[in-house]
Computed example of a mutant assay.
Amino acid sequence: MPGWLKVLLTCFLLFIIAGLAFAVFTFYKLNQLGTSINEGSEERQPSNLRREDVNIDKKDPISIALFGVDSDESREGLGERSDSIMILSVNPNNDKTVMISIPRDTRTEIVGNDSVEKINHAYAYGGPQMAKDSIENLMKVPIDHYVSINMDGLKDLIDIVGGVTVVSNSTFEVKGNSYVEGLPYDMYGEEALAFTRSRYQDGSGGDFGRQERQQLVVEALGDKLLSAGSITRINSILDTLGNNVRTDLKMADIQDIGTKYNGARRNVERIQLEGTGETMEDGLWYFLPDEESLKEAERKYKENLEIE
């Protein structure tokens, strides 16, 4: 056998061995991740607003609550609060996602706590289950699953994937950075977090501007995590997810969503609730959603779920 052919075969075998080793390592890490992030899937109950539970394996349209959790216990005397709240109706049949941002200061009934207050308190009082129940009561839509991510973990993930590119929705300045509406910006974690949290700066658009920026950054991060370039960072990505994410989705369901529902992430309709702000008798400022806005958001969300 010629020498050059031996070298070629050796390189080919090494390539195959390296590929198999990577596959085994990834399988191990994914199983490890599934164990660390899974929380309560065995005790999970189907939504009361569903006739029957969803089947991800059969590509049923699903509804997921996404919570950005702030663990600063010094704020308002509470523990973990959902600093950011979004719900996603994901339909693989029409390849569409409907994303609704719910302002964290929305005044509503906290189901299971016998109180009416800011919706982000629900997570602090009763974790994701109380938060899901309160969202269902407010929006009149089923919530099948949830995903919670620590906001510091969001920053770390953005750094690991090499930053995200976001088109600014407003013209404003925050923490030494300037943005012009309609222009794209490359951001790493700390800047992206400041970008999503800004609401008091001139031109930032207040709560509505902040909600849209949260949606934009979440979409950009999702695209980056699923890009081919992230494969080389798979170990760091999985470790960071394991430390900062909790969900009632099983690993098999997450993998199915990543493959069978992938087309829906490229077609996202973003919705923001309309309403007014008011300081109530308890001295706190609340967002009071408009009833017509709630009904229209409910209609679009359910339509994408293919339910009445």
Rank of each mutant, 00 (worst) to 15 (best):
95 D>K: 15
100 I>G: 06
96 K>H: 13
74 S>R: 10
111 V>H: 03
130 M>Y: 02
144 D>C: 12
156 D>S: 14
121 H>W: 04
141 V>A: 03
110 I>S: 08
66 L>Y: 07
117 E>P: 10
85 I>F: 08
131 A>S: 15
92 P>L: 13
124 A>E: 01
99 M>W: 11
149 I>D: 02
136 E>D: 04
137 N>M: 02
158 I>M: 07
120 N>V: 03
123 Y>V: 00
148 S>H: 03
149 I>L: 10
108 T>W: 05
102 I>E: 05
166 V>T: 06
117 E>L: 11
127 G>C: 11
80 E>P: 10
76 E>C: 06
95 D>N: 15
141 V>H: 00
115 S>P: 09
151 M>A: 10
103 P>R: 04
157 L>T: 14
90 V>K: 10
164 V>G: 00
127 G>D: 14
153 G>T: 03
163 G>V: 14
104 R>V: 00
90 V>S: 11
123 Y>H: 14
78 L>W: 04
161 V>F: 03
144 D>I: 12
84 S>W: 02
128 P>T: 08
125 Y>S: 06
98 V>A: 08
78 L>S: 06
68 G>C: 06
85 I>L: 15
77 G>D: 06
75 R>A: 15
80 E>T: 12
122 A>L: 09
161 V>T: 09
152 D>R: 06
128 P>S: 15
150 N>T: 02
117 E>K: 12
97 T>Y: 08
136 E>Y: 04
125 Y>V: 00
102 I>H: 05
87 I>R: 07
96 K>G: 02
124 A>T: 00
153 G>C: 02
104 R>P: 05
71 S>L: 13
82 S>L: 14
85 I>W: 07
91 N>F: 01
143 I>E: 09
72 D>K: 12
84 S>T: 15
115 S>Y: 13
83 D>Q: 00
89 S>Q: 05
85 I>Q: 11
166 V>L: 05
115 S>I: 13
113 N>Q: 14
159 D>Y: 06
70 D>M: 06
139 M>Q: 07
130 M>P: 00
130 M>R: 08
91 N>G: 00
99 M>C: 13
103 P>T: 05
142 P>D: 04
102 I>P: 08
149 I>P: 01
121 H>K: 12
83 D>I: 04
112 G>T: 12
151 M>Y: 09
118 K>M: 06
160 I>W: 07
137 N>H: 12
138 L>M: 09
121 H>A: 15
99 M>A: 15
112 G>C: 13
106 T>D: 05
93 N>M: 12
74 S>V: 07
128 P>V: 04
83 D>R: 04
144 D>V: 11
101 S>N: 13
72 D>V: 10
74 S>N: 09
156 D>A: 15
137 N>F: 05
123 Y>T: 03
105 D>R: 00
132 K>I: 13
120 N>D: 05
139 M>V: 09
141 V>D: 00
111 V>D: 03
94 N>E: 10
133 D>M: 08
134 S>Y: 10
87 I>S: 13
144 D>P: 11
107 R>S: 08
88 L>C: 12
147 V>L: 14
143 I>V: 15
124 A>F: 01
143 I>L: 13
135 I>T: 01
76 E>A: 13
93 N>F: 09
109 E>G: 05
